[in-house]
């Protein structure tokens, strides 16, 4: 069991919302990962849908490149929709 791959677990908490990363776990295959995800991460009514993906399939950005990737957005306030009035009905923006 020590060589079971690692899986990342994503849970949709209710219809209309996105799947959100909730953690990771070990499992031999996708089916077991799904069941383990159910047993470990949805015991308290956290979700209605589960995605699992083997961690090795996730490409992550390099923290060392953080400055070049993310800092340039810091001074571009005009990209935020704060200059418009959002209608009240619009949720989850």
């Amino acid at each position: 069991m020590n060589n079971w791959p690692l899986w990342e677990v994503f849970i949709r908490s209710k219809n209309g919302l996105n799947h959100k990363h909730v953690g990771s776990l070990h499992a031999a295959d996708a089916e077991m990962a799904m069941q383990n995800g159910r047993d470990v991460y949805t015991r308290r009514n956290e979700g209605i849908s589960i995605w699992v993906v083997e961690s090795k399939h996730i490409s992550a950005s390099d923290p060392d490149e953080g400055e070049s990737l993310f800092d340039p957005a810091n001074d571009k306030v005009y990209r935020h929709p704060t200059f418009y009035n959002l209608p009240d009905e619009l949720k989850h923006m």
Binding site: M1, Q35, D39, V40, R43
Partner: peptide, 12 residues
């Protein structure tokens, strides 16, 4: 349990 995930499955 043999691993954490199955430990929780059995406890559930």
């Amino acid at each position: 349990g043999p691993i954490l995930e199955q430990d929780m499955a059995m406890t559930n």
